[in-house]
Design a protein around this nucleic acid. Structure first.
Lengths: 122, 122
DNA sequence: GATCGTTATATCTTCAAAGATATAACGATA
DNA sequence: TATCGTTATATCTTTGAAGATATAACGATC
């Protein structure tokens, strides 16, 4: 019996290999797709609050992500200030910019991997 | 300023790139690591019930996975019989064996990808 | 028809994650 | 000192997934 293509084994028409990637430190996941987008939006808006709103995330969750990121990194990724003229605000560090850049490249390589694997199904 | 290694940006010592993969049909995830092990154990034990116990999964969840797998595949991956001498039992189809084999190869390639990406951090 | 262990299914309970809400702290400006 | 919008934090509610439990259906064997 000849070997069938995987897609022949399955019922529906459109199949893809998909997945997700993250950085792990001592078994703890800490840098997935969510945080990257949040960092980008903090950079754009200058505020955790506004960044959270833009991605329809609760402020609470956004703050937790920021807190977690800062705890895991050698230098803070997000610098926050409270009070002042505009009530405060946040900016991202050079390290955060490098992490964003790295993550974009990583995602691009992963995307290629997934596309190759999806082709292999057919 | 020279570009730092990613691992220098982070606090703790041991970092890895990790992730998970699955097959998707019409946006619905349906074939991850859990089902593969379950299929293997059904093949080994001849019973959904015993397979579930071996991997410390509730029968309910195991049965749901089996039901889902059969619904997604052109031919059933698990053939079940009820009643009879031993109360019934289950076996896996040729298609399931092919899926297991495919998934093992896919995991091996993914493992290589993750290892390469982890090396890149350092 | 009584027995057996399994499949098949429904229902109830638990538990953790997420969301909603409220409020204190902050500090430049006027 | 009053105002402002933001950060920082606590607490309560909601929700969905998982787990626990119970039971019917099944059919070869005796």
């Amino acid at each position: 019996m000849s070997k069938k293509k995987i897609s022949d084994l399955l019922k529906k028409g459109q199949f893809t290999v998909n997945g997700s990637l993250w950085l792990e430190g001592d078994g703890v996941r800490f840098f997935g797709p969510g945080p990257v987008q949040l960092l980008e939006l903090i950079q754009e808006t200058g505020s955790i609050n506004q960044a959270a709103k833009k991605m329809q995330m609760s402020y609470k969750k956004a703050w937790q992500l920021v807190d977690n990121l800062n705890a895991m990194s050698a230098q803070p990724m997000v610098i926050t200030t409270t009070g002042g003229e505009k009530g405060g605000g946040s900016s991202i560090s050079e390290e955060a910019i490098q992490m964003i850049s790295y993550h974009q490249q990583l995602r691009a390589r992963f995307k290629k991997f997934l596309e190759e694997e999806t082709l292999r199904l057919k």
